[in-house]
Amino acid sequence: MTVLRTRGVTVRFGGLVAVENVHFAVEPRQIYAVIGPNGAGKTTLFNAVTGIYAPSEGVVELNGREQVDPLTKLMVLRFVVAFVSIGIGTAIAVNIETLWTATIVDHYTFAQPFPWALAIGEFWSTLWNMPRTDSLIPLVLGGAVGCAAAFVSWWRGRRAPDHIARSGVARTFQNIRLFNELSLVQNVLVGMDHRMRAGFLSALFRLPRFFSERRKFHAEAGQLLEFVGLGSRADNAAGSLPYGLRRRLEIARALAGKPTMILLDEPAAGMNPSEVVDLMALIRRVRDAGTTVVLIEHHMRLVMGVSDRILVLQYGKQIAEGTPAEIRSNPKCVEAYLGSEDHG
């Protein structure tokens, strides 16, 4: 199954077209590179894939499913529940003084036990018998607002990055975004969070589940740090890492969620040649472990060295797609990337 497929993805910011009509497909266990001059729209494309920006047009498919959640019956049911509960809540809140008087004040005397059944019956009959303007208008208005709010929150969340990350797409950032005040292990554990199951109560009461899960994931985080070569610094703060190693930590954090696909945004930026060689080896190891890799990179030796296929963007448009050999021999790409070098 194709891991990632875009069909005619376009992203506009106001009048500016950052990405225009891009089609490409990434197969499982490929290393796929996106290249292009600065400002070609590579990062914007990544952001559209991971849900940070919504594509203005076109479709992104992840593992054969559309990136956007369809409106399910369960969701519609949720809107109905929101309408009913918030509507009734509003109607009660607006008339609370009348209702309280009718149910509590009118029936309560210090001497006798309180007639609960009578009071509850009185509550509903008061609500039912009051002027329709007092009960029905708040009910409908409040319900409509609640229903609309539930819809808006669903609409905004249906392409949310968290949702996409949970479906197995992890990423790193061009301008590294680590949690600097947390330790390396903690950073990796954040990436594992959506695989954990122990909830609020097991943390609060330290139930056995909490401990078993903590043991399991701590061990795994340690292994992952070893895998990227940071095992000896596991308890340092992420902010104290040298620049080159931060990218490795970001990769470890992205791998922590056991993604089917990992998007690397300029992983070699600012690295010296020997670090780049190490990085190439790491990327291959990630792929060999079963994860599809999509990367944005300017470092041509790395791109040509590791990629299975390459997509070339220029001014937001796709100008070529193919194997490294095809790209190397494509005159349009050579011109776009190397400028007028060939023409003297």
Partner: peptide, 28 residues
């Protein structure tokens, strides 16, 4: 107990960088 759990870690991560947390699958 809450601070030193998955929940506390998620809180800290949101405080530091909401977008990164979201991209790691934290339901902010």
């Amino acid at each position: 107990n809450l601070e030193r759990s998955r929940l506390g870690r998620a809180w800290f991560s949101i405080r530091e960088d909401e977008i990164a947390s979201r991209s790691m699958g934290i339901r902010v």
